[in-house]
């Protein structure tokens, strides 16, 4: 290489990254990829057994795991301070934990949509609050990546609660990007289309073959894999994204392009 200015693509060597929803789907794929990029992972999930399995599969060393319910938003900042005190400050936060919800309006109860907002949106805000605290985020700066959805910009029957929780993340991304820029913290969002994850399998279980085919056809490149989303999370976290903040990167096989 003839130029020291080159950004070594995607390297996250020794950087500590907290990932929620780490036991399955997109969160798990993110942990796997980030560990191969030499990050030290703090894997967070509510499902302890699945979390054990996920952490065992990580590359490299220096990882930690926490069985924690991110719906417990009041406790998030204090808990993150603990995590940082025990294992060192964090460079990045990825909020991949989330709850899907397909409910027609007439059946959508306040308790149900509040739970969706709590896990998908309020937890994201609380994680950013925790990360912004002294001695939690790395003094040299850091990077936050939220996972929203194409449902933040597209509509579908029964998607009201999920869509509003994910659209709110886009607003959060833009405002936090502005507010945290002086502290050298970048805030971005990845908006995936339909990806084959355990969450997708649960959601699509009642569909017939024709319905599944229709959803596939809505993606000109077909359905995605968790690793497709993980790649974009890594791109935004790493120095490859050093001048990107307040952006939403849609990774959807062309779903929103047509």
């Amino acid at each position: 290489m003839n130029d020291p200015d080159f950004i070594t693509p995607l390297s996250l060597r020794s950087r500590r990254v907290l990932v929620t929803g780490a036991a399955s789907g997109i969160g798990r794929a993110a942990c796997e990829l980030l560990s191969r990029l030499e990050a030290r992972i703090v894997a967070v999930d509510i499902d302890e057994a699945a979390l054990n399995g996920a952490v065992q599969g990580l590359a490299g060393e220096g990882h930690a795991q926490c069985c924690f319910d991110v719906g417990d938003v009041e406790r998030i900042p204090g808990w993150m301070a603990d995590v940082a005190q025990k294992g060192g400050p964090l460079f990045g936060v990825v909020h991949a934990a989330g709850l899907s919800c397909v409910q027609p309006l007439r059946l959508l109860s306040p308790a149900a949509y509040r739970k969706v907002l709590l896990l998908n949106t309020e937890a994201a805000l609380a994680l950013a609050r925790g990360f912004h605290k002294k001695a939690v985020g790395d003094a040299a700066g850091g990077s936050i990546v939220f996972i929203s959805s194409v449902m933040a910009s597209a509509g579908a029957p029964g998607a009201a609660a999920y869509a509003m929780s994910k659209a709110a993340l886009h607003g959060l991304t833009r405002s936090l990007a502005m507010e945290l820029a002086p502290g050298k913290i970048r805030v971005n969002c990845v908006a995936p289309g339909f990806v084959r994850t355990p969450m997708f399998d649960r959601m699509s279980a009642p569909w017939d073959a024709a319905q599944l085919a229709r959803v596939e056809e809505d993606h000109p490149l077909g359905l995605g894999a968790p690793a497709d989303v993980a790649n974009s999370i890594a791109f935004l976290l790493a120095d490859t994204g050093r001048w990107i903040t307040g952006s939403v990167l849609t990774v959807d096989g062309g779903y929103t392009a047509h």
Partner: peptide, 29 residues
């Protein structure tokens, strides 16, 4: 250049039809 390299690479194999803003936060300000 980093963003271009990423979008051309196989890592972006499921990204098409997108506008990626790389502007240091200018357009959200």
């Amino acid at each position: 250049a980093c963003a271009v390299e990423y979008l051309l690479s196989d890592r972006a194999r499921w990204i098409t039809g997108q506008e990626l803003v790389v502007d240091g936060g200018r357009t959200v300000n």
